[in-house]
Computed example of a mutant assay.
Amino acid sequence: MVQQEINMPFYSDLTELISDFSFDNLKSFCENHYILLSGLLSTAVGLKLLRTYFVGGVFRSKARLDGKTVVITGGNTGIGFETALDLAKRGARVVLGCRDVTRGEEAAKKIRRASGNGNIIFRRLDLASLESVRQFARETLAAEKDIHILLNNAGIMMCPNWKSVEGYEMQFATNHLGHFLLTNLLLEKIKKSAPSRIINVSSRAHIRGQINFDDINFQKEYHPRLAYSQSKLANVLFTRELSRRLEGTGVTVNALHPGMVNTELARHMSEAGYHMWALYPLYPLLMLVSKTPEQGAQTSIYAAVSEEAGKVTGKYFSDCALKDPVLPENSEEVERRLWDLSEEMVGLKTH
């Protein structure tokens, strides 16, 4: 009854105001419902402030990339597409490496149209196939004079217990091993193009990860979330080890967390047994705290373009700022061990 007593006069007066609008009626309406209007305004301002907080950093620099060549994996959708579009608008030559040919070619067309930059190239790349990675690298090395920015962006999250072409756990294979091999195959050209940058898109999920050297492929018992966290920690550890190996070359290597972004990345969770319908009641909250793909791309753009990011290496960014990753004990030892294992798994190990 109290709710009805509060709301009915408000709606009645609002209807009257709309039907017979005047500034005198508006003044009277505001005076009669001052408390309720103040509460609504405070709520709206509070929601706006919360939304601004969760959106995070925005990279506003107008810096150009004319004459620069960018290779970006997974540039056909989500933050990869938005990052590629932004870099194209800055004048860069952008090479998209995507698994789906139809979607990759369509993304390249959209970026050309939206940016006015015709220098957008698509090449097929399936990170879950080491031969596909090698083929992409061969084609890119043959066609590109320079590679100034390599943005390892593509990823898969919490999929069922799938295997890569070589039989490796899919998330570790796609998120880490494919990018590890690609980076090493392109490395000499990246060094010759210095100053240049390598950027690995990780996730805050790395804080829950550990490198399970005794069962790297989760053959004993598969946990989608733990496997994802392992692969994202691998991105950070790979970044740190590679940065040490490239000291003095003019190549910087950094990792980043894009934030909680509303993209297709979560599309496999229901297949892995996560009941997405259970999150429906939380949908308004999730929309409040999650970023759009354009907002989620800001830290990737920052890492690729900003002068500040070009001066550091082996670091981790979030919301366009330096942050401290959560690392395992004896991190450098784990990083070296992961490097050696990755070399062996992708066939780069020399004896």
Rank of each mutant, 00 (worst) to 15 (best):
E307V: 11
E307P: 01
E307K: 15
E307Y: 06
E308W: 01
E308I: 07
E308C: 05
A309W: 09
A309S: 15
G310N: 13
G310S: 13
G310Q: 09
G310M: 09
K311D: 08
K311Q: 15
K311P: 02
K311M: 10
V312A: 04
V312N: 02
V312P: 01
V312G: 03
V312W: 00
T313C: 06
G314Y: 10
G314A: 11
G314H: 10
K315G: 00
K315C: 14
K315W: 00
Y316V: 08
Y316F: 15
Y316K: 09
F317P: 02
F317K: 05
F317V: 08
S318T: 08
S318C: 11
S318D: 07
D319W: 00
D319G: 00
C320L: 10
C320G: 12
C320R: 06
C320M: 09
A321I: 02
A321P: 01
L322K: 12
L322F: 12
L322I: 14
L322V: 12
K323C: 05
K323D: 00
D324C: 03
P325L: 01
P325M: 04
P325H: 03
P325Y: 00
P325C: 06
P325A: 07
V326F: 07
V326C: 08
V326E: 14
L327P: 01
L327A: 07
L327R: 00
P328Q: 09
P328T: 07
E329Q: 13
E329I: 09
E329K: 15
E329P: 06
N330R: 12
N330V: 05
N330M: 11
N330P: 02
S331T: 14
S331E: 15
E332L: 13
E332Y: 08
E332M: 10
E332V: 05
E333M: 09
E333W: 02
E333P: 01
V334D: 08
E335Q: 14
E335K: 02
E335M: 10
R336D: 06
R337L: 05
R337T: 07
R337E: 14
R337V: 03
L338A: 06
L338R: 01
L338G: 03
L338D: 03
W339V: 12
W339M: 10
W339N: 10
D340M: 08
D340W: 04
L341P: 01
L341Q: 09
L341N: 01
L341D: 05
S342N: 04
S342G: 05
S342A: 14
S342H: 02
S342E: 04
E343C: 15
E344K: 15
E344S: 15
E344H: 12
M345V: 10
M345R: 13
M345P: 00
M345T: 02
M345C: 00
V346D: 05
V346N: 05
V346F: 04
V346H: 05
V346M: 06
V346P: 03
G347K: 12
G347C: 11
L348M: 14
L348R: 10
L348F: 07
L348Q: 07
L348D: 06
